[in-house]
């Protein structure tokens, strides 16, 4: 009863105001049983493949072909093979270093460029902005093979340098998001700083950067996931025995004759995907806010 009292108070306060107020009792009981059911079914369908992945990863190699829903025996030692059959930890280290390096560089670099586009005027700006939008349409694949030839020319194949260079150049998508976000700030923000004698770089570092935290998170997570998930660039630019997890897990787990080992593939895929999911869950709130703040204001 006491609980009921508590929930009723805000209702009385809110409802007369206007249509935007959400009566609290909406959250108390499922108001839309049909929508609830649809979302539940879709969610379960989305997650089921992960369950199948876990189950498959625990089938013993002798029984990978059994057609039961659950394995007859849970073979936990599969995971030992997953990390020893291929140099898993070396690949994982490469993935972490490259993804973090690229994400850090591109998050900062895109913010710098986005600030320039949003807050400074110069001849040729519209042309360059048009170029930015056009490069968003150029697929990775179109530039990657010629870029690979370029990197090979400078002896950068097999090193981390390509990712450093890509990171420093910034990502068009992230630049666009920053530009939209920074454009929404009032002019007075800078004018006050200029009165205090601050230069452009200080204004950017001390005012704009701290205010864009959700967007920094969004850009970092997007960039990290891009490199973590990229199969094509490391496949071209790194040695097969010193590559990233994407390539290692994608190509690994076959025995000599080339027959795949589905249980180990499942285990490898699971270990490979878990960090991405954890990163997303940890950053989810800022990530969603980053999108809401910037992607839509035109």
């Amino acid at each position: 009863m006491a609980l009921d009292e508590k929930t009723r108070v805000p209702v009385a306060r809110r409802t007369p105001a206007h249509g935007t107020a959400r009566p609290a009792w909406h959250q108390r009981r499922p108001k839309h049983p049909v929508i609830f059911t649809v979302l539940l079914v879709v969610s379960v369908l989305m997650v089921l493949p992960f369950a199948e992945l876990v189950i498959s990863s625990l089938r013993s190699t002798n029984a990978v072909n059994e057609d039961t829903w659950l394995p007859s025996a849970f073979e936990w030692s599969n995971y030992k093979k997953v990390v020893t059959l291929i140099p898993f930890w070396r690949f994982a280290r490469n993935s972490v270093v490259l993804s973090a390096l690229f994400a850090l560089l591109t998050t900062l670099s895109s913010a710098v460029v986005g600030y320039g586009f949003a807050r400074l005027r110069a001849p040729g700006k519209n042309l360059l902005f048009g170029l930015l939008i056009s490069t968003m349409m150029v697929p990775q694949i179109v530039t990657l093979i010629p870029t690979y030839l370029l990197f090979a020319n400078f002896g950068l194949v097999g090193t981390y340098w390509p990712w450093v260079l890509w990171g420093t150049a910034g990502a068009p998508y992230a630049i666009f998001l920053y530009r939209q976000f920074f454009s929404s700030f009032p002019k007075e923000l800078e004018e006050a700083a200029v009165i205090d004698g601050a230069g452009r770089i200080r204004i950017f570092v001390q005012i704009f950067l701290p205010l864009s935290r959700p967007l920094l998170v969004t850009a970092f997570v997007l960039a990290f996931n891009t490199v973590w998930g990229d199969f094509i660039a490391p496949n071209l630019l790194l040695d097969q025995d010193n590559t990233t997890l994407a390539v290692g897990v994608g190509n690994g787990y076959v025995i000599n004759q080339g027959f795949p080992l589905p249980n180990l593939i499942a285990g490898g895929a699971l270990l490979y995907v878990v960090p991405v999911v954890i990163l997303f869950l940890a950053a989810q709130r800022s990530y969603v806010r980053g999108f809401a703040n910037s992607g839509l204001k035109g």
């Binding site: 320039g116 400074l120 110069a122 490069t135 530039t143 150049a169 452009r200």
Partner: peptide, 21 residues
């Protein structure tokens, strides 16, 4: 200042997008 802030992207795009294309 504008071209200073944009320089990483301008150089990067010239070398890693426009030249390859």
């Amino acid at each position: 200042a504008f071209y200073g802030f944009l320089s990483p992207w301008i150089i990067g795009t010239a070398a890693l997008t426009l030249f390859p294309v």
